[in-house]
Amino acid sequence: MIRGIKAIGEAIIKDMEDPQLDLARFLIEDLSKPRGEKGYVVILKINTDGPSLSLDIGSEFSEPSLEIGAKFLWVGKPTGANDDQDRLTTDKVEYLISQTIPNLIREDRLEGGELRSLLEKTFHTIFFDLGDGESSLFKGQHRRYRYIWDLKGLGIEDAPEPKELKEIVQESGDRKRGVKEVAKVLKNEIKSQLDIKPDDISLYTLEIDGELVAQHPDYRKYIFKRLVDDRFVNAEEGI
Rank of each mutant, 00 (worst) to 15 (best):
I2P: 12
K6T: 14
K6R: 15
I13D: 13
M16D: 13
D18S: 11
P19S: 08
A24W: 06
F26C: 13
D30T: 13
S32M: 15
K33G: 11
R35E: 15
G36D: 12
Y40T: 05
V41I: 07
I43W: 00
L44M: 05
K45P: 00
K45G: 06
K45A: 02
D49G: 10
P51G: 03
L53N: 01
S54K: 04
L55M: 07
F61C: 05
F72R: 04
F72D: 01
W74L: 08
T79I: 14
G80P: 10
A81S: 13
A81W: 12
N82V: 11
R87W: 10
T89E: 01
Y95C: 11
L96V: 04
I101F: 02
D108Y: 07
L110V: 07
G113H: 04
S117M: 07
L118V: 09
L119H: 02
H124N: 13
D129L: 00
G131P: 06
E134L: 11
S135E: 10
S135C: 08
F138G: 06
K139I: 08
D150M: 04
K152Y: 07
G153K: 02
G155K: 02
G155E: 04
I156N: 00
P160H: 02
E161D: 14
P162G: 03
K163I: 14
K166R: 09
K166N: 10
I168E: 15
Q170C: 07
E171R: 11
E171T: 13
R177A: 15
V179K: 02
V182H: 01
V182I: 07
A183F: 11
L186W: 05
N188M: 11
I190Y: 06
S192T: 12
D195I: 09
I196T: 06
I196E: 02
D200Q: 09
L206Q: 00
E207G: 00
I208V: 07
I208M: 02
D209E: 00
V213M: 04
K221L: 08
K221V: 09
Y222L: 06
K225H: 15
K225F: 12
R226C: 11
L227K: 12
